[in-house]
Write a protein that binds this DNA or RNA. Structure first.
Length: 234
DNA sequence: GTCCAGGGCCGTT
DNA sequence: AACGGCCATGGA
């Protein structure tokens, strides 16, 4: 029994519902203000290969000192920033990456992210990928969660599911992203499509954390009847 | 003590 | 193009 991204979305939606995922105050972000967008960007960098619980500590440190703004990150010295984001790990490189980002938006957009996200989606992605420290997943997370624009985020969990579930895709970032976007955009569009990308990515993370772990717990998995992981013995 | 988490860069092949 | 080493903390 084969699966498609549309079917996967429907199954996981049934299980997890509306997640509206990014862990930030929803009302705050719904206003699409530049500060809430930047908070998401900072989180996207800090969570690179890092558990979210550790990221929260770092974000909380920044927030306490009211340093969670473009201008502040741009001005703060590297050592102090390292100290504040220490709990998120890889703090030396992440501090540099945050300063590069803050400086970029400060110089090119006068610190106003609303202007940045009004550009063409492909231009936005190109620009982000040209910033050192921003790879494909970080760029797409920023576009989807900070920009509320339709881009499907592929992460380690998504790749794992694509290996285990009968989905018709290769395992490279590009292939998976194109496959999901092509299929899902046949069914949904506009703001609904953004919601679907958001919820599906969130649902995949949920599923992978609870059931489809490295050492999977298939017995209670909601996708068990669709999965051929055990037969494939991957 | 060991494993691993919502990656990306850089150098080598 | 693809792969391996590296970066670092905190919770399970």
């Amino acid at each position: 029994m084969n699966l498609t991204p549309i079917k996967l979305y429907e199954l996981l939606y049934e299980k997890f519902g509306n997640l509206e995922w990014w862990p930030i105050d929803k009302e705050y972000h719904r206003k699409n203000n530049s500060d809430s967008r930047f908070e998401i960007i900072v989180g996207a960098v800090l969570t690179q290969n890092t558990a979210w619980a550790n990221v929260e500590k770092a974000l909380s440190n920044l927030k306490k000192k009211q340093f969670l703004e473009i201008e502040c990150i741009n001005k703060i010295d590297l050592q102090s920033l390292c100290e504040l984001i220490k709990p998120s790990g890889f703090f030396n490189q992440k501090a540099k990456r945050l300063k590069i980002l803050a400086n970029y938006f400060f110089e090119h957009y006068d610190g106003n992210l609303n202007v940045f996200f009004e550009k063409d989606l492909h231009d936005i992605r190109e620009e982000l990928l040209n910033i050192k420290g921003v790879g494909p997943e970080t760029a797409d997370s920023i576009i989807l969660y900070a920009g509320n624009l339709p881009t499907f985020v592929v992460d380690a969990y998504t790749k794992r599911l694509c290996r285990r579930l009968p989905l018709d895709t290769n395992f490279s970032y590009q292939d998976i992203q194109l496959y999901f976007e092509k299929n899902l955009s046949e069914q949904y569009n506009g703001k609904k499509l953004v919601r679907v990308y958001n919820d599906l990515h969130a649902s995949i993370v949920n599923l992978a954390k609870i059931y489809c772990k490295k050492k999977p717990e298939c017995a209670k998995c909601p996708l068990l009847s669709y999965c051929n992981f055990e037969n494939k013995n991957l």
